[in-house]
């Protein structure tokens, strides 16, 4: 029997070790797997490379992971936001390395990793500092830069519903990088607001097929990042 359900967020992240590359879903406050990130903080792994669109807000979730000095390197598209003090302080102190990637290139690098593509040529960043040093090619009169897939050891993803095969649905704009990151990681760990019986998700409504998912854990009432920031919450 295939049963990807695990009992707790702690169990779900128990094998994430020092130096791992971890994809973290979410775009702004939508889709952040905050409870899984907190379990990762409790787990204690250090020297992580973390991939996320942003670099955390307030003092919870990814921002807390950074503040606990667990992240050696961030790969993201846009680290600054109205509440990104945690990242900014560490970056200015030279305690975290930063690789900035154009957003569409980040998405496609993840997709390429999940889809077995060895690289791709994109017109994005041609002639800019983010295209410097990269192989370029002119195809049908247009210039492109070569980008490589972005593989990872783990992905932490927030979904709306999941079943024991790992089929997922997402809610509204919380989908963002989720389906791509699920494909790109060796081990994909999902927190879902609810677990469905097998067959309880309409096959046509499945967004991420279970083949791309390894573990699912129910987190019925995920933390609201907005409210946590208003309250000034910190983790731990």
């Amino acid at each position: 029997m295939i049963d990807k359900r695990v009992a707790s967020v702690a169990e779900a992240v128990a094998d994430i070790t020092d130096g791992a590359t971890v994809l973290i879903g979410g775009f702004g406050e939508a889709g952040s797997p905050t409870e899984l990130i907190h379990a990762l903080i409790d787990r204690g792994a250090r020297g992580l490379t973390v991939v996320n669109n942003n670099a955390g807000n307030g003092h919870i979730g990814l921002a807390a992971l950074l503040e606990q000095r667990r992240v050696a390197r961030m790969i993201c598209t846009y680290p600054r936001s109205s509440h990104s003090e945690a990242f900014e302080e560490l970056y200015r102190a030279g305690e975290v390395a930063l690789e900035v990637v154009p957003q569409g290139t980040l998405a496609e690098r993840l997709r390429a990793a999940g889809a077995g593509i060895g690289g791709f040529y994109t017109p994005t960043a041609v002639g800019t500092p983010l295209g410097e040093g990269k192989e370029t090619r002119t195809i049908d009169g247009r210039d492109y830069v070569l980008e490589y897939p972005l593989h990872a050891d783990f992905a932490l993803i927030k979904a709306e519903r999941a079943d024991r095969w790992g089929n997922l649905t997402y809610r509204l704009a919380a989908r963002n990088f989720g389906p791509l990151m699920c494909m790109a990681a060796e081990t994909t760990i999902v927190q879902a607001r609810s677990l469905a019986e097998l067959g309880g998700i309409d096959p046509e409504a499945v967004v991420t097929p279970g083949i791309f998912v390894d573990r699912v854990v129910a987190v019925p009432e995920p933390m609201s990042e907005r409210e946590a920031i208003l309250r000034g919450d910190r983790y731990p």
Binding site: F27, A173, F177, P179
Partner: peptide
């Protein structure tokens, strides 16, 4: 407002009739 419904500037938004949601690779 709904935390799962924001735009690229992280501002709360609404969806109009006919709207659709996709993942980032399709969006780009």
């Amino acid at each position: 407002q709904d935390e799962d419904l924001i735009n690229a500037g992280k501002q709360p938004i609404t969806l109009l009739p006919g709207a659709s949601i996709c993942h980032h690779a399709d969006s780009f």
